[in-house]
């Protein structure tokens, strides 16, 4: 186990604990303190990047449960996020229901849509499933673009800010707290999910679905459950995204975004709780960095082609995905656990 020498468990509660040693608790406290005092000294721009990172972590955690734990590749995650975003927008704007109803409703609707498109996973896998989720992505976006009466179609749709009781969360800082609380809850639940009966069933299905079925794991139940949970979290992320941007357009949820999510969990490390967080941090900061640096480069080298700013980002991500798959297939999470192990064993 990944515990320092001399730490023993004397009961099951200790054995199961996520935070085991005093050092764990101290680190957790420091991290949380840094996180929640962040808005005091971060500027608005940093905060908005942090908010986007939080939302993306929720979505990536969902995809990680589906792809990383259960092994069902989905290239339609942005589509499911879009379902959640529009569901939340419609619930809070057209029906004028409270934010929390919109949040849970968005998750539920996205989860159900995910289950519908996950049904083929009972008979097919690998590439077939990838294609049917691509089909899901296109069908969802097409419906959003054409169901003008409900979604606003190509013109998009404005979304009211989050309203909890009498509180209206307009500023980045106030949304930061909301998003981070949900992120922490989701990550905590995801960590525990991986250790429950369902989580172990997911891993068994990922490793060999036939063997899992022979052992008595109901593929029907657990594959669809994985789709539901994965897309539920996508819906939650979509809801937060809708309120965060304030304006929805199907342009925000392209197939390239879906691929980006797959890239995120690969870079972070499939099938680990910490992986999606690393992946999102790397990708979103990289995006932000490229956005900042490319005008500077363009100013320095005026002969660059005109599409430099638009093109360099996808190129870098494409290369990152390829390099990670070839050289670090277990992602940053593995690197992180190696680092922790060597820290524990230091100076040996």
């Amino acid at each position: 186990m990944s515990l320092p020498t001399g730490i023993r468990s004397y009961n099951y509660a200790q054995d199961m604990a996520v935070f085991r040693t005093r050092a764990h608790w101290v680190w957790l406290g420091v991290l949380l303190a840094l996180l929640f005092t962040g808005p005091l000294y971060w500027g608005g721009e940093l905060l908005s990047v942090a908010n986007l990172i939080g939302i993306t972590i929720i979505a990536a955690t969902g995809l990680n449960i589906l792809t990383g734990y259960c092994g069902q590749l989905s290239i339609g995650h942005a589509g499911f996020i879009a379902v959640g975003a529009y569901a939340a927008a419609i619930i809070t704007k057209r029906f004028e229901l409270p934010f929390l109803v919109g949040l849970i409703g968005a998750g539920g609707v996205a989860g159900l849509v995910g289950v519908v498109f996950g049904i083929p996973s009972l008979r097919v896998k690998g590439f077939y499933l990838a294609i049917s989720t691509i089909a899901a992505q296109f069908i969802i976006i097409w419906v959003i673009n054409h169901w003008t009466g409900i979604t606003g179609g190509f013109n998009g749709m404005s979304v009211p800010p989050v309203q909890i009781g009498r509180l209206t969360l307009v500023t980045q800082a106030s949304q930061f707290y909301l998003i981070m609380i949900i992120v922490i809850t989701v990550v905590f639940l995801a960590k525990n999910l991986s250790r429950t009966r369902a989580g172990r069933a997911f891993v068994a299905i990922r490793d060999n679905d036939l063997a899992a079925q022979v052992m008595g794991i109901s593929l029907f139940r657990y594959k669809l459950l994985a789709f539901f949970i994965g897309c539920f979290l996508a819906g939650i992320a979509g809801s937060l995204f809708a309120h965060w941007t304030g304006f929805l357009n199907a342009e925000n949820f392209t197939m390239m975004d879906s691929i980006l999510y797959v890239g995120i969990i690969i870079i972070g490390g499939l099938g680990t709780t910490i992986g999606p967080i690393f992946g999102v941090l790397v990708i979103r900061w990289l995006q932000w960095f490229i956005m900042k640096i490319s005008p500077v480069i363009e100013a320095l080298f005026p002969n660059l082609p005109a599409g430099f700013t638009a093109g360099i980002g996808p190129m870098v991500f494409g290369i990152a995905i390829i390099l990670f798959l070839i050289f670090m297939p277990r992602g940053l999470a593995h690197r992180w656990s190696l680092l922790r192990a060597s820290y524990r064993l230091w100076p040996f």
Partner: peptide
């Protein structure tokens, strides 16, 4: 997924 990476690269 590696072909997805290629797709991303080419699009860029």
């Amino acid at each position: 997924t590696v072909t997805l990476g290629v797709a991303f690269f080419i699009e860029g």
